[in-house]
Design a protein around this nucleic acid. Structure first.
Lengths: 228, 228
DNA sequence: CGTGGCCTTGATAAAGTTCAAGAGCCGTGG
DNA sequence: CCACGGCTCTTGAACTTTATCAAGGCCACG
């Protein structure tokens, strides 16, 4: 059963005993999605939740006019769709794969039983939900209190936290997707990237961005500086 | 100990036995705040979380220029500041009372112990966090995908869900606060209320709003109609 | 009865979206 | 191997929404 090995490496299932991991493995169902496939839609009945094993998934909302706002981008090891398990029962947003992806699906009923008898698992889940809450609170802050250059600067700084200048960031997503994550449109993002380039804050490539002036970005993200 | 009675009526502590309620009561600390007092600030070390017993509390973020975005408005019985207990350890936003308020404070350490041995409590907490996640996802959607009239319409519809037309809503907050909740400023809100009044969608009073045309508001919130 | 807070209204300005067109890149298939 | 079609990205110009700045009105509370 190599499924146990996969499960053991998922942060959500950290600190669990062999026996507990086996219990979890017993209720997990493996699934595979092609790039661009819809995993679930906002409003769907949430009969369980997912853990991403490989690939990438975006969680997003769509406006009637077709504009997309990305809430999260999930990488391997991350759970998604959990909120529907513990409250409300239907998904508050939609999920689509960004590349070919493997996921594990956990049916609601069995998982709730499992968590009930498993304090470590429930604390892990609480930690994940709390972290997600924080991410969304920051997104709200970005959207409401920052202009697009500030949002982009904050994003770049966040994703380069552990690198030194000149840091080269592999975006891993298209600029269209990045725009949707920042709450804007590709045209606006493109213009701002070019302005940031002119001011020697960054150097933008096709799918990567080089940070030249961290301090400048910080000032932008905090509103104490503006792009000319 | 009337503290037990208070605790028993808190939804978070539903379905718990007498003994469990007593355990919870044992670690709770009562606190009292005057109107407008800060309960905690973004970034503060979260040594525990709160349950609001009476009064009102807003959870908010502040921009460097002083603009405020309200994330939640808490009423009696609701917990707040929980995210810091389970992840991150510092508060992701600030909290201020809207009126004189009584709260119970639960120290982190003892509460984690308690939840570990108490599956029902942990499921309740998961449900609360999940619901909060949903609220924030909707706020993001509002801010990013709707214009101010649409946000206001959605807000009004949500808060009148269980009433029939013509529903009279007691806002319970000032229009300045409502603006901060909708991600705009009082001037803009004022103009939009007046436009909605002209179109006979609502009738706005000082601290209450009467809904005249639910269908019209729905269309506004879904983007299929615009204010002239 | 005066003062401060909240709300309203108007004029102006800024940021971002929309619409439109064109350039670069890539995979497919002739 | 090259050409085509589709996709993403970029750039420009006009337009829309919202914020900002300024002033005046209303009400409550001391």
């Amino acid at each position: 059963m190599e499924i146990i090995k996969k499960i053991a490496s998922v942060p959500l299932f950290e600190d669990l005993s062999k026996k507990q991991l086996a219990d979890i493995a017993a209720i997990a169902v493996g699934q595979k999605y092609k790039r661009g496939q819809l995993v679930f839609s906002e409003g769907d009945e949430g009969s369980g939740f997912y853990v991403l094993i490989s690939g990438g998934v975006k969680i997003f909302k769509l406006s009637p006019e077709g504009k997309e706002q990305i809430l999260h981008i999930m990488g391997p090891g991350e759970p998604f769709g959990e909120a529907a398990v513990f409250a409300g029962e239907h998904f508050p947003a939609s999920a689509r794969t960004l590349s070919e992806s493997k996921v594990l699906f956990f049916p609601r009923r069995s998982f709730v039983d499992l968590i009930t008898n498993n304090p470590a698992l429930s604390l892990n889940m609480l930690a994940f939900l709390s972290r997600r809450l924080r991410v969304l609170a920051n997104l709200v802050e970005s959207l409401s209190l920052k202009e697009v250059p500030g949002r982009l600067a904050a994003y770049l700084l966040y994703y380069s936290k552990h690198k030194n200048d000149p840091a080269i960031l592999e975006l891993g997503i298209s600029k269209t997707q990045l725009a949707a994550l920042l709450g804007t449109i590709p045209e606006t993002l493109s213009r701002i990237l070019s302005r940031m380039g002119k001011e020697k804050l960054i150097k933008a490539g096709l799918r990567h961005i080089q940070i030249l002036d961290r301090q400048g970005l910080l000032e932008l993200s905090e509103g104490s500086r503006r792009l000319t």
